[in-house]
Amino acid sequence: MKVFAPLVLTVLRYVLLVAILGFAGYYLVSQWTGVAAALAEISWPSIVLSFLLVLAGLGAGTMSWVSVLNGLGPRIPIARAAQVMLVGQLGKYVPGSVWSYVMQMELGRQYGILRPRVLVAGLYAAGIGVVASLILGSMALPVVLRGHTQLLWLFLLLPVGLFCLHPRIMTALASLVLRAFRRPPLEHKVTIRVVGKAVGWALLSYAMYGLHLWILVNSLVDPDFGTLVLLTGAMSLGFTVGLFAFVFPSGVGVREAILVGAMTLLLTVPQASAMSLVSRLMFTAADLVAAGLAVLFVIVLRKRILAESDRNNASHAYEPDTDVSLVARD
């Protein structure tokens, strides 16, 4: 039975990956009719720049995740860690966003990164993302007070999140999760530098996303700097709302409600709805492109990554791989 376990896990990984790509592709096709008309009103330079900003935001968000992962244990090469994060996070397109964590844990397992460590990194990165989004989301309070007062409770999470970001609290909670998986606690404490880097990258990520939306709106009207601040806050808050709407694929629908509410200060409701669809389409396309680029980088830099891995292994930087019995127990 133990002999077939690795084969079964490999098959399941590929089946899940095919399902993820299928859901993401279906979403792109199903939304194209509503997006095509809106794209015709946007200049191509604005489309290209806006899309590049989404990719930049994804890159910053990935660095936030990598910072947390490397803060919880031995350093993993950035290209390899980025592949785990970007390919794994495509699982959010399958209804029930738990699949992104499953994919990340399985991909990490292939590189000798223990599943609990990847899970803890994902949960903490999500928590850091919530804190960062609520910090910037406070700039969208006019929109919340105008038509989404039911979301005010989200801001109660900010002091709780800030408390949990204390290095000692992070270390204790991470060790608690590892103990639940029958793994030893962290060998060293999470440092304030790790927390600061992760929060900084997350804030930069949301700032890029806000600028992306501002560029789209700028193609129809002439928004000022105040609008940039408002749209950045709305985009950030939308991500947090989408995170809690985990029963929908990648928070579909709930983020758009926040964005439309913010954009109707400048655009008509049909225009705002169209821009939100364009934005969502760009995020889906960027997710697929970023995951593909991460895989490509790992292939191109394979020798360099393996050399770095050998150096890390020699200095005990990598966690030892587990045998089949431990895989089953994980």
Score class of each variant (00 low, 15 high):
Phe4Ser: 10
Ala5Arg: 15
Pro6Met: 06
Leu7Lys: 10
Leu9Thr: 08
Leu9Glu: 14
Leu12Arg: 15
Arg13Gly: 09
Val15Arg: 07
Val18Ile: 15
Val18Pro: 13
Ala24Thr: 14
Val29Leu: 13
Ser30Arg: 04
Gln31Val: 05
Thr33Asn: 08
Val35Arg: 03
Trp44Val: 11
Trp44Gly: 11
Ser46Pro: 06
Ser50Phe: 01
Leu55Gln: 11
Ala56Tyr: 01
Ala56Val: 01
Gly57Ile: 04
Leu58Arg: 01
Ala60Phe: 12
Gly61Asn: 05
Gly61Tyr: 00
Thr62His: 01
Met63Leu: 13
Met63Lys: 09
Trp65Glu: 00
Val66Pro: 02
Val66Met: 03
Gly71Cys: 00
Gly71Lys: 00
Pro74Tyr: 07
Gly96Phe: 02
Ser97Ala: 08
Tyr101Thr: 14
Met105Tyr: 03
Glu106Ala: 08
Gly108Thr: 06
Gln110Ala: 15
Tyr111Asn: 11
Ile113His: 05
Val120Pro: 11
Gly122Tyr: 05
Leu123Tyr: 01
Tyr124Met: 10
Ala125Val: 05
Ala126Leu: 08
Gly127Ile: 04
Ile128His: 00
Val130Leu: 03
Val130Phe: 06
Ser133Asp: 02
Ile135Cys: 06
Met139Gly: 10
Leu141Ala: 15
Leu145Cys: 13
His148Arg: 15
Thr149Gln: 11
Leu152Asn: 02
Leu156Ser: 10
Leu162Gln: 07
Leu165Arg: 12
Ala172Gly: 03
Ser175Cys: 11
Val177Tyr: 08
Leu178Asn: 14
Pro185Tyr: 05
Glu187Asn: 04
Gly196Arg: 03
Gly196Glu: 11
Ala202Asn: 04
Ala202Cys: 03
Ala207Met: 05
Met208Phe: 14
Val217Asn: 00
Leu220Pro: 10
Leu220Asn: 11
Leu220Thr: 14
Asp222Leu: 06
Pro223Thr: 04
Leu228Arg: 07
Leu230Gln: 14
Thr232Met: 12
Gly233Asn: 10
Leu237Trp: 01
Gly238Asp: 11
Gly242Ile: 09
Leu243Lys: 09
Phe244Leu: 03
Phe244Cys: 03
Ala245Met: 15
Val247Met: 04
Ala257Asp: 11
Ala257His: 13
Ala257Glu: 13
Ile258Pro: 04
Ala262Ile: 07
Ala262Gly: 08
Ala262His: 02
Met263Gly: 14
Gln271Ala: 00
Ala274Thr: 06
Ser276Lys: 08
Arg280Met: 13
Met282Thr: 11
Phe283Pro: 12
Ala286Met: 05
Val289Gln: 00
Ala290Lys: 10
Gly292His: 01
Ala294Asn: 02
Phe297Pro: 07
Lys303Gly: 09
Lys303Leu: 09
Arg304Pro: 12
Asn312Lys: 14
His316Thr: 13
His316Tyr: 01
Asp321Lys: 15
Asp323Ile: 09
Val324Ser: 09
Val327Asp: 11
Val327Gln: 15
